[in-house]
């Protein structure tokens, strides 16, 4: 009889113990979740930064062929744009200024667009750099592009130095290049 009572007590303490474990786990989880920043506002660095730039090679919107490796030895701004993108239109004059200043080269990637409108877009801003066509966005995927305009500064050795989300200015780009030079790139 005392043995069965003891078992009852063991059972009760077991339930209590289990309840305690659940309580501790839930409390720890609550604290963990409560102290995290919301996923929607967290900043995650691009995984390709500080790595060798993914390849870009293919037909241009003007009908030729171009590869990123053609620009090896120079600072390159890889700019993902589209003729349907309003922010790209705001950014384009700044890229022209950057290109004309001779600080670095620009290689555009026309994201999910048609060649005709893309050519018209580039000529409207007097943008004379090559624009590789990416009608299905498959180049953009390799670079982790979410929505244009997004740009990447590439070092002369072909390393991605930084990812720029949204429109960028010529002044910002020139400073970034100077700082990159100062850091031995």
């Amino acid at each position: 009889m005392s043995a069965s009572k003891s078992k009852v007590r063991t059972g009760t303490s077991g339930i209590k113990w289990f309840g305690g474990v659940i309580a501790v786990v839930l409390l720890a989880f609550s604290i963990f979740v409560a102290t995290r920043s919301p996923a929607s506002s967290s900043i995650e660095a691009s995984p390709i930064v500080e790595h060798v730039a993914p390849a870009i090679s293919g037909p241009t919107v003007a009908g030729g062929h171009f590869s990123l490796t053609n620009y090896r030895g120079k600072f390159v701004l890889v700019n993902f744009f589209a003729s349907w993108c309003a922010s790209c239109a705001i950014e384009e004059p700044q890229l022209v200024r950057f290109s004309k200043a001779g600080i670095g080269r620009v290689l555009a990637v026309d994201f999910q667009d048609e060649n005709g409108p893309a050519r018209a877009f580039l000529s409207r801003y007097d943008a004379n750099w090559p624009a590789v066509a990416d009608p299905n966005g498959q180049i953009a995927i390799k670079w982790g592009v979410s929505a244009p305009p997004e740009s990447f500064l590439i070092s002369p050795s072909g390393v991605v130095l930084t990812k720029i989300v949204g429109p960028v200015t010529a002044k910002e780009l020139s400073i970034l290049v100077q700082v990159a030079k100062a850091n031995g790139y």
Binding site: S40, A82, F111, Q112, N136, G137, Q138, A140, I141, G144, V145, S146, A147
Partner: peptide, 26 residues
Amino acid sequence: CPSCIDLSVAESSAASSISIKTFIKN
């Protein structure tokens, strides 16, 4: 979907989602 909030690629029709759908299919 890289350019949306809390939407899967399947649920989204954003340009980036269309690219990823094509990528997965290929």
